[in-house]
Design a binder for these strands. Sequence first.
DNA 1: GTGACTATTTACCGCTTGGTCACAAAGCGC
DNA 2: GCGCTTTGTGACCAAGCGGTAAATAGTCAC
Lengths: 209, 209
Amino acid sequence: MSGNRVPPRAQRLPPEERERRIVAGAIAYFAEHGLDAQLRDLAQHLGVTHPLLYRYFATKEALIERVYEEFYATRWQGVWDALLGDADLPLEERLTRFYAAYLDALEDGPWLRIFAFSGLGNQRASQHYMASIRARVIQPVAAALERRPLDGAARPGPVAVELAWALHGELCFGPICHRLLGLPQKRLSEDDIRRQVVAWLDGWPPAPH
Amino acid sequence: MSGNRVPPRAQRLPPEERERRIVAGAIAYFAEHGLDAQLRDLAQHLGVTHPLLYRYFATKEALIERVYEEFYATRWQGVWDALLGDADLPLEERLTRFYAAYLDALEDGPWLRIFAFSGLGNQRASQHYMASIRARVIQPVAAALERRPLDGAARPGPVAVELAWALHGELCFGPICHRLLGLPQKRLSEDDIRRQVVAWLDGWPPAPH
DNA sequence: GTGACTATTTACCGCTTGGTCACAAAGCGC
DNA sequence: GCGCTTTGTGACCAAGCGGTAAATAGTCAC
């Protein structure tokens, strides 16, 4: 009967450090339990009481907004743009390397789940993100498929765009089912990805009907 | 200043009819607002007060359970099994017809959103459903790809299964983004589907490396 | 009409939630 | 030690939630 443990008072931290921890914890916690999760639970998870959160974020919504900001700031890796646009590499190589990295990010980060929760709630946030997918993945891939440099002026034709979406969906579907629904999907190796990319490239140009 | 309208008392209905309406309303409402939506709101949507729901369902969970039951009972169309297994039709034709019908169901029904909400909450329900997708779509398609009848004994090889998942993901990704995230994805026509199916069939057998 | 039955509602309980505020306590200059 | 500032907390509020029970009002048999 050693005195019943009362939770110790949280260590006093400089504001920047505390804020960093809150944001990091919120990302992980919301990714797991959804954006409707309780601030008290999140605070306990952080070893802190919930009023402290209100010292750093005026409302729960402001905290979630901050999570979104972090999402847009860190989600996309700048090198991917260069990789996809690198005309010196054969398209097969570009696509294989890009999707290997992209699928890794999908599988490992908390972002896919946050994205899903936000998309099911209000659709504005997810539309914003998907628009950037179109601009940074689909359009470059479609343009490369047409053997054209991605030029602001000439946009890729609808058939190439449709094909680019097909490849994207084909490759992302597995990780999505895995992370969102807990399905025992096998993780694609770089060889798997290359195989699908090659098969996909074989479909171009589309056979005349 | 015509007397402030007080909501009229709900019309008295025979229990079966009322129950039907509650279930139908719950499906639509939960699909829209998620399974965490409030019973009071659902009841108001039905033109009824929320204690009435408790005459028909002991708890909120019981109501949701009923929604799931309806899901499993009506989601899958029996004819699809026959269509996918119909050895008299060329595989191209079977796949095109099946996915045309399946994607229509994905786009039009409330089920995709309910499925997503349930999957994000607890993953058991969605795993149950995805297991049936594997048994009723992926495995038959993979077996057909190997020109084998779908026999209980011989299961299709992993490469064929992986390809079948790829086609499934490729075709379902668009509707999923559309219904879940509100993306302005174009609806695939039967011709679009056929084109993707043909390109996909061209990838078999896989080129030796 | 009268009474019995039951579908529906009003009023309520206990609990949880986002949010507030006064106060405790840690650090720091002196 | 003694204040002063600032991080962190206990206690609280109001609103909203799932759920309950007693009261109300349609409906039907007679």
